[in-house]
């Protein structure tokens, strides 16, 4: 009896090994069909012609390693360009797709936001409006003034970048920025140990602990003629991006002449009086296309952020949220 049990157990194990071997062999064949070349670290699921769903490395958007811009090279901007962004406050509906696209592209945590969406109510009689706020890449940046090591710098193409190989984490720039555009890496995160991408200030990936980071206008995308991640992902076409020297801005669908857009729609810069000369222009929230409540359809945690806005307090009192 025992003998039989032993032998059947042995057979059972052998069966397992055999079928395991088959499965393994099958997988190896598939893997040989699809070999990963210079991977981006991002995986996508593709379908092969014989109906197999396989995960491969996405083709690297930045075509590294040839396109790698070192920290020294990143101090010179893209020649003959001066980048500028226009944000149409009449269309923003707090979809937050821009926030998430940026976080995905830059390996950020849920709470780390390069593009912040504020809810601003100018005064009690005013209607509040959603206010996307990236870094303004000012022409007279308060942050660059005060950096003791030159880790943050302004380029000729208007972009202000942070070189986290040089940043010593003194946080003077964070205290200096009047628009609260910068954030700090307070602790270590696993994504900082990524080995598959080389660091470039133009991609801000991978981050480093103890350094400052902020919106970078995605120069890596610009070098390939692509729009920054936030601009291309906005479903409402709120964000326009372009070159002020050629006077054109686009939101991915429509392209308009920048000077005309600003002059016809009354474009302005936020807190102009502070003299930082920002390069992000806003189109006033007149004739808003969507009611504000549409943007409140988000998680409670996000709506809690705006608890100090009088309009939200009113809605809470009325029990609408």
């Amino acid at each position: 009896m025992e003998e039989k049990n032993k032998s059947s157990r042995r057979k059972f194990l052998k069966l397992g090994l055999i079928s395991g071997a088959t499965a393994l062999a099958g997988n190896t064949i598939i893997n040989n069909l699809i070999s990963d070349q210079d991977g981006s670290g991002v995986k996508i699921k593709v379908l092969t012609p014989d109906g197999q769903m396989v995960e491969v490395d996405a083709e690297h958007l930045n075509k590294y390693p040839e396109a790698h811009i070192t920290p020294e090279e990143s101090r010179k901007g893209i020649p003959n360009r001066k980048f500028v962004m226009v944000i149409d406050l009449a269309r923003c509906n707090n979809a937050r797709v821009c926030v998430e696209a940026c976080q995905k592209a830059h390996n950020l945590d849920y709470h780390q936001e390069f593009m912040k969406i504020q809810l601003i109510q100018d005064h009690k009689q005013a209607n509040p409006y959603w206010f996307p706020k990236p870094c303004f890449h000012c022409d007279e940046p308060s942050c660059v003034k005060v950096c003791p090591t030159g880790a943050t710098f302004k380029r000729d193409d208007n972009i202000v970048l942070v070189d986290t190989t040089r940043c010593i984490g003194c946080k003077f720039c964070i205290t200096s920025c009047p628009y609260s555009a910068r954030i700090f890496n307070w602790g270590h995160r696993e994504v900082y140990d990524r080995k598959d991408v080389k660091y470039s200030p133009e991609t801000s990936v991978p981050g480093t602990e103890g350094t400052v980071l902020k919106c970078d206008f995605c120069p890596d995308m610009l070098r390939q003629g692509e729009l920054p991640h936030c601009v291309r992902s906005c479903p409402m076409g709120v964000l326009y991006f372009g070159d002020i020297l050629e006077d054109l801005v686009t939101n991915g669908e429509e392209t308009v002449q920048f000077s005309k857009l600003i002059n016809e729609r009354g474009g302005y810069r936020y807190l102009e009086r502070l003299g930082a000369e920002p390069n992000v222009y806003y189109l006033p929230p007149v004739e808003k296309q969507f009611p504000l409540e549409g943007g409140l359809d988000k998680e409670d945690e996000i709506i809690e952020r705006y608890k100090n806005v009088p309009y939200i307090q009113e809605l809470k009192k009325q029990g609408k949220i």
Binding site: K11, L15, G16, I18, S19, G20, T22, A23, G26, N27, L47, G51, Q52, M53
Partner: peptide
């Protein structure tokens, strides 16, 4: 019986390999 079990296992593992059946 063992033969049947082998076949079942083989099919199961093949199916398992093509786990995300398309």
């Amino acid at each position: 019986l063992s033969r049947i079990i082998v076949i079942i296992f083989a099919i199961a593992s093949v199916i398992n390999t093509y786990a995300q059946e398309f």
